[in-house]
Design a protein around this nucleic acid. Structure first.
Lengths: 350, 350
DNA sequence: GTGAAAGCGCTAACAT
DNA sequence: ATGTTAGCGCTTTCAC
C-alpha cells in the first residue's frame, strides 16, 4: 500500500484524484444521468481505486433523505421475529431501503428508548410490533412524519398503517376447532409475560368462545424464562398430575406445545384420543417431530412482506393516503394432535 | 393538539420555546455539565413539551461521532446468531453504543454490500462474523479507521481484533471424545453450504484427528434448506439404511442432531450403545429432548459480550493498541448419547 | 454536460 | 454559566 490515511476519504479526494468537480463526482456516484461516459468512467475508476465509501451522514443531512427503515420488535428469542424480519428484508428489496432493528424485550420503556434512538436517525419509515405503546411512544410515532406500520396484531387502534392478524379471533377459532372435535375438559399452558398482549388476546378470545359453549378452562399453567421445550414438558407433567381428567391442552406457542407432545409420547399417552394438543405459530420445528402438533399459522413472513411494501410504496409516492389496514387470516392446521370426529362439525375453513 | 408541524423540530425550536441559546440547549440535551439548574429545567421542559427528537445525522456530522456499531452476520435462521447478538447488546450496555445489524446469507457479495452500507454511516466499530472475506471487504474494513472485531472463529488471519473459538480444534476434540468412547465406524451429517467455513473447519479437524487414529469417516450425508429437525430425521434414516454398521453419527449442528436423536428413539435404537450421537452448538432446545444430545458449547453469548467489550473499550480510549485476540475454549458435554467406557481414556478437559 | 454557492442541523472551539 | 462563529461532507439550486 502506498499510504494509509487515517482520515476517511471524501468526495473531494475523489474529485482531486479524477480531476472532476465534486458535484460531478457526486452525480456519477449516485448514478444520475447527464454525465458523459468518459467522465463517468474516470470517476468510477478513481473512486474504486481509492476505496471511497460515501459519507451517508453528510448525504442524508444535505438531502433530507435516509434509506433506513426502523424496525422495533420485542426480541429474537422465540422464532417468530426472525421470520418477520426476513419478510421485511425481502419486501424492501429493490426499494433501496435498509432495515435497522431495535429490541424492546417486551418492556414499554425499552420500546420508548429504541424508538427515540431510531427516530433520531430520521428513518424513512417505522415498523413496530404491536398496537400497545406508551403515551410518549405514540406521540413520537405520530409526529415522526414518516409512515408508521404497526405489525402482528390488528385488535386495537392503529397510529397509521397496520398489518397483522386478529389474535382474539385466532383464539376463538382454535376454541371452535377444539370444541368441534369433541374435547370438553380443557387446560391452558402459556407464558407469564403480562406484556405479551398478543398471547393475552388469544387466551381472551379462546376463553370467551369456550364460555359461549358453556365450557371453562379447567386448569392452567404458566412459565417464564428457560428452554421453552423443557418448560413445555414440565408444565405438561405438572398440569396433568394436578388435573388428570383434562382431555385437551392448548399451548400459547408451538415450542412449549412441542415439549408437551414429546413428553406425552414418551409416557405412551394416546394422542389425540386420550388428550388432544394445539399450539400457535406454525414453527418449522414442528415438521421434524414424531407427530404434527395442531397449530395455527401466524403469517409472520407475509406480515413482514406487506409491512415493508407499505413503507416502500409510500416512500416512492408520498401522496398516498396512508392508514392502510391489512388483516391476514391465519389457518388452523389440525396436524395429528386434534381428533377428527366423523360426526363433528366440519371445519368452516375446510 | 394545537398544531401539527410536518417539519421535524430542530434545536432552534427548543431554543426559541425556552428562551435559551441553541448552544446551551444542546448542552442540556447532551447532559453536559456547566449549566445552571434553572436553565436545565427550562430546557428540559420545553424539549419534552414539544416532543423534540434530536437529529443524530446533524449531530454526527458535526461531532464526527456515531453511537452505532455495525454487526454483520450470516442470518438469524439457525439459533446461533440471536444469542451472539444478545451478548453484543449486553456488552454494549452502558457504553452508549447501539448495534445495527446487517445480514449476508453466507454470500460474500452480500457481505460486501452490507459492509459498504454500514460503513457509509461511519459506525464506531464493526463486528463481523468469520475471517473469510472478499478482497474488497477486507480492504474496506482495514481502511475503516474504527475497531474491527471478527467473531466466531480464530482459525485464520484477522484484520484487527478477533474473538471466537477454534473450530478445527472443536472438530478434533470431538473426534478425540468419540474415539475415547470406543466408537470406530463413524458417519458425518452436515449442511451443503460450501461457504459455511466454520462447519467446514470442524469437519476438517474432525477428519484429521480420526485419520491420525487410523479411522475414516465411513459415510456422509448433506442437506440444504428446510426444517433442520426434519432433515436430521431424514438424513439419519438415509445414512443408516445405506450404512447400517455405523456406530456413531456426528452432526454438524444440534438441530439436525436432535432430529436424528428423535428418529432413533422412535425406532427403539439403543443409544448410546448401538449408536452414539453428537452435535454442535449447545442449543437450548436440547434441554427439552428425551435424551441429552452430546454437544459442544460454541460460547456464542460470550463471544458477543467480549466483542462488544473490545469495541466499547477502544472507543472510550482510542489509544489502545488493538488487534486483540480472544480464543474461547468450548467444552464437550457428553449428555446421554456418548457412551462412557470405564476403561476408556479420560477426557483431558475433565 | 459541468461547476459554484449556499446550507442541511448540529457541535467544537473559542469567546465572554 | 452562556453565547458566537465556523464548518462537518454532502446535495440542492441555479448558472453557464
Amino acid at each position: 500500500m502506498s499510504k494509509t490515511p487515517k482520515r476517511p476519504l471524501t468526495l473531494r479526494d475523489v474529485s482531486e484524484a479524477s480531476g472532476v468537480s465534486e458535484m460531478t463526482v457526486s452525480r456519477v456516484l449516485r448514478g444520475l444521468g447527464d454525465v458523459s461516459e468518459a467522465t463517468r468512467a474516470r470517476v468510477q475508476e478513481a473512486a474504486s481505486r481509492l476505496g471511497y465509501v460515501p459519507n451517508r451522514i453528510a448525504g442524508a443531512l444535505a438531502s433530507n433523505r435516509v434509506n433506513l427503515v426502523a424496525v422495533v420488535i420485542p426480541s429474537l428469542g422465540n422464532m417468530v421475529f426472525p421470520e418477520v424480519l426476513s419478510g421485511i428484508s425481502e419486501g424492501l428489496e429493490g426499494s433501496g431501503l435498509q432495515p435497522v432493528v431495535g429490541f424492546t424485550d417486551y418492556l414499554p420503556e425499552r420500546e420508548e428508548k429504541a424508538l427515540f434512538e431510531m427516530l433520531s436517525w430520521r428513518p424513512s419509515g417505522v415498523i413496530v410490533a404491536g398496537l400497545e405503546h406508551s403515551e410518549a411512544s405514540r406521540a413520537m410515532l405520530a409526529r415522526a412524519g414518516v409512515p408508521v406500520v404497526e405489525i402482528m396484531d390488528v385488535d386495537g387502534e392503529a397510529i397509521d398503517a397496520v398489518v397483522g392478524i386478529s389474535h382474539v379471533r385466532a383464539g376463538r377459532e382454535m376454541a371452535d376447532a377444539i370444541l368441534a372435535a369433541g374435547y370438553r375438559r380443557i387446560g391452558f399452558l402459556g407464558t407469564k409475560m403480562p406484556l405479551d398482549y398478543r398471547a393475552r388476546k388469544r387466551l381472551e378470545g379462546f376463553r370467551a368462545r369456550l364460555a359461549e359453549a358453556g365450557v371453562g378452562i379447567e386448569d392452567q399453567e404458566f412459565y417464564e424464562g428457560g428452554s421453552a421445550l423443557l418448560k413445555g414438558r414440565e408444565m405438561t407433567q405438572a398440569i396433568l398430575a394436578r388435573s388428570p381428567d383434562l382431555d385437551f391442552l392448548y399451548y400459547s406457542n408451538d415450542m412449549i406445545g412441542a415439549g408437551g407432545l414429546l413428553w406425552l409420547l414418551g409416557k405412551g399417552v394416546a394422542i389425540p384420543d386420550r388428550v388432544g394438543l394445539a399450539g400457535f405459530n406454525r414453527i418449522e420445528l414442528l415438521d421434524g417431530l414424531p407427530r404434527r402438533l395442531a397449530t395455527m399459522d401466524a403469517c409472520r413472513r407475509e406480515i413482514g412482506l406487506r409491512a415493508a411494501a407499505i413503507v416502500a410504496a409510500r416512500r416512492a409516492d408520498p401522496s398516498l393516503p396512508g392508514a392502510e389496514r391489512v388483516e391476514l387470516t391465519p389457518t388452523i392446521e389440525p396436524g395429528d394432535t386434534l381428533r377428527r370426529r366423523p360426526g363433528a362439525a366440519p371445519d368452516p375453513r375446510a
